[in-house]
Design a protein around this nucleic acid. Structure first.
Length: 451
RNA sequence: GCCCCUAUCGUCUAUCGGCUAGGACACCAGAUUCUCAAUCUGGGAAGCCGGGUUCGAUUCCCGGUGGGGGCGCCA
C-alpha cells in the first residue's frame, strides 16, 4: 500500500450532488490507482439536522456507484472518528495551539456582538501548487485586504469549515486533496493554517465543476443535480460511473466504455481537464443503453428485479421464469424503470392493451382475426415449443396461406402482449408457454376490446 | 468592486509547434429488420477575438471578450 491518502468529505444535507459523486469517484480512482487509502469523512457540523438519514443518502449513493472506502463510517479506521461532530476535542486542541502561538486571537465584535476567534492571515500572496491548475498565486483581494484575518471559531464556540477541514486533514494524514475548483480561492487560507500549525500542506488537485447543459451552474435545485434521481430513474450504476469519469477526465484515447478496473488503471491527475464540463444527458443516456445491452444477464436481473417488485409484478413468479423473461427483454428498455411496462404481459393476464396498436393492426384488416385463428390452430399442433420451431411453423403457415409472415407476426404480437413493440416474437412465445399463448390467441378478440 | 480558474464541432474530448484538426454523443441520409431497438455505411459540424514569439501556431506569451468560481460567525 502506498502512502497516498485521499478523502471525500461531504456534508450530510440529505442529498448527494452529482458533482460530489464525481469528486468521490476521482478520489476513489486516485486511491485505487496509486494503491493508497480512500477515506470517507462526514462533515456534520450543523447540529440541528437529521444526520442519520442524510448520512445514509451519501453512503448508499457511494455504494451504489461501487465506491467503497477504506476508512470511514461503518468501517472505522485508525484515524477516526470519521464524523466531524465527534471530533470537537481535537478541534479545540488545535485552536488552543493557534491561540498559544499567537497565530490566532480572541476578537470582540462590537457590531454583531459576541467574541470570536480569528486567525492571523498572512498579508502576502500565497501560491497554491496545484496538480491540475499548476502554481496558482493568489494575493488578497480588496475586501480581504481591508480585513485579512478570518474567523475560525464562532461566538457560540463552534469552529468553522476552514479550520475543521484543515485540522481533520492533518489528523487523518491526508496527502492529496482532490476537490471541486470552487475551493481553489480559499486554499491560501488553508495553506496558511497548515503553516501556522507546523504541518506540511498536502498536494492539491482542484477539479473542474459540472455545469448544466446550458452552461449555468448546477445547483441543488436543478433537475439532474442529485444522484438519487438517476438511481430512481433506473440507470445502471456502471453507466453513471462511466459517464461521470469521462466528465473532466480523459483516458487520452478513443475508448468510451471503461470498466472500473480500466478506469483505475488509467486514471491520473494530469489527465484531468482544467475547464468546466457541461452535463450531457444524451450521452449519459447512450451510455446507459450500452450497458443495458451488454450487462451480464445476472447483473441485469439483479438491477431490474427491484423495479419489477416495486410494480408488484413479481409475487408468486418462479425465479427461473423471471430470469427467462428478463433474458429476452434485455436491451429493449433503456432504463430499468421502464422494465414493468415492457414485461407486464409476462406476469399478468389483465395486461393493458395499446389501443393504437390494436387499431393499426386490426382496424383496416378484418382478415387479421381469421389469420390469428389459423395461427392458433397451427401453434396448437406444435409440440416442440421453442422459438425456432414456432418461427418455422409460422412461416410455413404464411407460405401455405400466401401471406407475408408479417401479416401473422404483427397480429400475434398484439394479441399476446397488447402492444406493437416488444422483444422478438418467437422468444416471447417460447417464454410465455404454449397454454398461455393459445389461450390469449383465442381470447384476443374480447381482450383487445374490439368488435 | 476585487481576486482566481478557464476557452477545439451544439455537447464530452484527442492533439506533448508541422493539421487534409481525430473520436464519441446528438443530428441528417441510406442499408438491414417480425415491432422497437441495435447494427452498418455516408454526411454536415470546431480551434472566441486581437496582438506578439517562431520558418511555421489550435498548441507558447500578452491583452480583450465570454464562461465558471471565490471574497460569511455556510460547507
Amino acid at each position: 500500500m502506498s502512502s497516498v491518502r485521499v478523502r471525500f468529505a461531504p456534508s450530510p444535507t440529505g442529498f448527494l450532488h452529482i458533482g460530489g459523486a464525481r469528486t468521490a469517484l476521482f478520489n476513489f480512482l486516485y486511491a485505487r490507482h496509486t494503491g493508497g487509502t480512500f477515506v470517507l469523512r462526514i462533515e456534520d457540523t450543523d447540529q440541528d439536522r437529521h444526520v442519520e438519514e442524510a448520512v445514509q443518502v451519501i453512503t448508499d449513493g457511494l455504494r451504489w456507484l461501487g465506491l467503497d472506502w477504506d476508512e470511514g463510517p461503518d468501517r472505522g479506521g485508525p484515524h477516526g472518528p470519521y464524523f466531524q461532530s465527534q471530533r470537537k476535542d481535537i478541534h479545540r486542541r488545535y485552536v488552543q495551539r493557534l491561540l498559544d502561538s499567537k497565530a490566532a486571537y480572541e476578537f470582540e465584535d462590537k457590531e454583531r456582538g459576541g467574541t470570536v476567534i480569528k486567525f492571523r492571515m498572512t498579508r502576502e500572496p500565497v501560491t497554491v501548487p496545484d496538480l491540475i491548475c499548476g502554481n496558482v498565486t493568489r494575493p488578497l483581494n480588496d475586501t480581504e485586504m481591508r480585513d485579512p484575518d478570518f474567523v475560525i471559531v464562532r461566538s457560540d464556540g463552534a469552529p468553522v469549515f476552514h479550520l475543521v477541514n484543515v485540522v481533520d486533514d492533518i489528523e487523518m494524514r491526508i496527502t492529496h486533496i482532490i476537490r471541486g475548483e470552487d475551493h481553489l480561492s480559499n486554499t491560501p487560507k488553508h495553506i496558511a493554517l497548515y503553516r501556522a500549525l507546523g504541518a506540511e500542506p498536502p498536494k492539491f488537485a482542484h477539479i473542474p465543476l459540472i455545469l448544466n447543459a446550458d452552461g449555468s451552474k448546477m445547483s441543488k435545485s436543478d433537475k439532474g443535480a442529485a444522484l438519487h434521481e438517476y438511481i430512481n430513474a433506473g440507470y445502471a450504476p456502471e453507466a453513471v460511473r462511466n459517464f461521470l469519469c469521462l466528465l473532466g477526465w480523459s483516458p487520452k484515447s478513443d475508448v468510451e466504455i471503461l470498466s472500473l478496473d480500466q478506469m483505475v488503471e488509467r486514471f491520473d491527475l494530469p489527465q484531468v481537464q482544467r475547464h468546466n464540463a457541461r452535463f450531457d444527458q444524451d450521452k449519459l443516456h447512450w451510455m446507459q443503453g450500452q450497458y443495458m445491452m451488454k450487462l451480464p444477464p445476472e447483473r441485469f436481473v439483479e438491477l431490474g428485479r427491484p423495479f419489477l417488485a416495486k410494480a408488484g409484478l413479481l409475487e408468486g413468479q418462479p425465479e427461473d421464469y423471471v430470469r427467462r423473461v428478463l433474458a429476452i427483454v434485455q436491451g429493449k428498455p433503456k432504463l430499468f424503470s421502464e422494465l414493468p411496462e415492457w414485461t407486464v404481459f409476462f406476469f399478468r393476464e389483465d395486461f393493458p392493451t395499446d389501443a393504437e396498436a390494436v387499431a393499426k393492426t386490426f382496424g383496416g384488416q378484418p382478415q387479421a382475426w381469421d389469420l390469428l385463428e389459423k395461427l392458433r390452430g397451427c401453434f396448437a399442433r406444435v409440440s416442440d415449443w421453442t422459438h425456432t420451431a414456432l418461427d418455422a411453423a409460422l412461416r410455413d403457415l404464411a407460405k401455405s396461406l400466401g401471406v407475408k409472415p408479417a401479416a401473422l407476426i404483427h397480429p400475434c404480437r398484439v394479441a399476446v402482449s397488447g402492444k406493437a413493440i416488444g422483444p422478438s416474437l418467437f422468444h416471447m412465445l417460447e417464454v410465455l408457454g404454449k397454454n398461455r399463448v393459445l389461450q390469449r390467441l383465442a381470447a384476443a378478440r374480447e381482450h383487445l376490446q374490439f368488435d
